[in-house]
Nucleic acid binder design. Structure first.
Lengths: 125, 125
DNA sequence: TCAACACTTCAATGATTGATGAAGTGTCAC
DNA sequence: GTGACACTTCATCAATCATTGAAGTGTTGA
């Protein structure tokens, strides 16, 4: 499969204009703050253990000990993971009695998580 | 030392550790390999400098020195970044004379990149 | 009040990562 | 061939990160 780029071909005469900067600049290059924030989302999800938590949360909220049990790791480790995910805005927290329930913060996160998992399941390029 | 897990063996049907909350069993929890691969995609994109490269490539292919110039960093640094992105399968490489052009490998990557940037531009929760 | 429970935070440690200059590879023009 | 150019790889170093036990916080029920 090939590419579906906005600019499909580099141009017939644009073969040597590499050092000329004659390229059309990207439509709206994100600001440094936007890049930082977007990278933060990705970085938070970019670890197998945290990603697994996100996948679990995609089917509904869970409390910390449930997540700890299903991962086979300690409460401290799990709590630290959730803290990071929350700091980046991927999950939200809700206390109910002695338990604290975590859930994905919005549908964007669900899309991101399910999308990347689906991509990982596709046959290799 | 005694503070480990207190659960005796969970019965065949006792899978929840919280107060009897029954939720749908996670539809298809990804395998460890799938999680690793998906996390690899995310990790590769999860850095502002690399993400900026991906955004630039979303509007068309670029050669290494172009990307180095626009980032204000050295060729070596830029090349290492592209190598990582290529190792994770996010970009592809094409040589043409003295130049090497990089492009996003498929539309999934474009969707991922543009999606997360769009998310980062939304108002804060 | 006290004990038990469900987390959370702290601090230390080992592992991973990103940036960089120097050296190496590949291509072109002469 | 030689030199110039466009990268790529190597080796090193500083910074960041994930995990863990211990200690701390908050809630419930006796």
């Amino acid at each position: 499969m090939l590419i579906g780029h906005i600019d499909p071909e580099p141009g017939p005469e644009a073969l040597e204009s590499c050092s000329g900067h004659a390229h059309a600049p990207s439509p709206a290059l994100p600001s440094a703050a936007e890049l930082e924030r977007a990278a933060g989302y990705l970085r938070a999800a970019a670890e197998p253990a945290r990603l697994r938590v996100l996948v679990q949360l995609a089917s509904g909220e869970r409390c910390v000990s449930e997540l700890a049990d299903s991962s086979g790791e300690g409460l401290s480790t799990t709590s630290q993971r959730l803290k990071l995910l929350r700091a980046e805005g991927l999950v939200v927290r809700r206390r109910e009695g002695k338990h604290v329930y975590y859930a994905l913060s919005d549908h964007h996160i669900i899309d991101l998580v399910l999308g990347v998992i689906e991509h990982a399941r596709e046959p290799l390029r």
